[in-house]
């Protein structure tokens, strides 16, 4: 029997009369990798915002590890082990790459300074940014910023990681490495939810895929089931 780390129930959200989310219900199983796909404007990022406290839902509940977290300030999510990235990177442009990571370590108020530094170095090596540790973040390319952002959130060793299009703008060789690392993290017990457009990649990585369209979840299930769904084929495989 599996347990849910995140239970989303009946989330609705409208902006000025436009219903963006019309009742999203989703269970994320402990230790799974879940992919969320859907056309642009389907409400995927809004859903992430609501899960992590950056926006408030109109209705519905969100349970993280069985506890209702709706209405908490975003900075408290991070401390509970729930963290996300943004579709457009939001690193600190005028801090150095290293400082960008250390801020995240501090925010959690945990590890001692030495341990934190080691971890930062390790993560920078992993995302191939160690050579740029003392460069200001604003001098990085888009792909590098994406990597930096990933390294940032990993500083927290989160229980649940929400990634908003983590592979956009990153060269294919590195994507494979990241996927491998995400699998490793997953094996160590980290639950991952990611928004991604690349259906084959999602299919190979995820245990479960949810398709969001028109503000609801149209279909949810194992990759082979979802990929072979005719409607999904029509939308994502141009078929």
């Amino acid at each position: 029997m599996t347990t849910s780390i995140l239970s989303i129930e009946g989330i609705t959200k409208s902006f000025g009369g436009l219903d963006v989310l019309k009742g999203i219900t989703l269970e994320v199983e402990q230790g799974s990798i879940t992919g969320i796909i859907g056309p642009n404007g389907a409400g995927k990022s809004t859903l992430f915002d609501i899960i992590t406290g950056y926006q408030k839902s109109d209705r519905g509940s969100i349970l993280f590890e069985g506890e209702n977290i709706a209405g908490l300030s975003p900075h408290l999510f991070a401390r509970r082990g729930l963290i996300r990235t943004f579709q457009l990177t939001r690193v600190f442009p005028h801090l150095t790459v290293a400082e960008n990571l250390l801020v995240f370590a501090d925010g959690k108020n945990s590890a001692g300074a030495a341990g934190t530094k080691d971890k930062a170095v390790e993560l920078l090596e992993f995302v191939h940014l160690i050579g740029l540790a003392n460069a200001e973040a604003s001098t990085l390319s888009y792909g590098q910023l994406k990597l930096l952002e990933l390294a940032q959130v990993l500083m927290h060793s989160p229980k649940l990681l929400l990634l908003d299009e983590p592979f956009a703008g990153i060269n294919p060789g590195l994507i494979d490495k990241i996927i491998q690392h995400l699998r490793d993290l997953n094996k160590q017990g980290m639950t991952i939810v990611l928004i991604e457009h690349n259906l084959p990649m999602v299919a190979s990585l995820c245990d479960s895929i949810a398709v969001v369209s028109n503000g609801i979840i149209e279909i949810v299930g194992p990759p082979d089931v979802v990929v072979n769904n005719p409607r999904v084929k029509e939308v994502f495989l141009g078929g």
Binding site: T52, Y54, S73, P74, H75, L76, A78, R79, I83, R84, F86, R90, V91, F92, P93, H94, L95, E99, L102, V103, F104, D106, G107, K108, N109, Q152, V153, M155, H156
Partner: peptide, 18 residues
Amino acid sequence: TAIRAVAQQADSALLSGI
């Protein structure tokens, strides 16, 4: 550093747990 982080990107600062 936390102050500079908040000044530059309040959203990410929240994310970091600040």
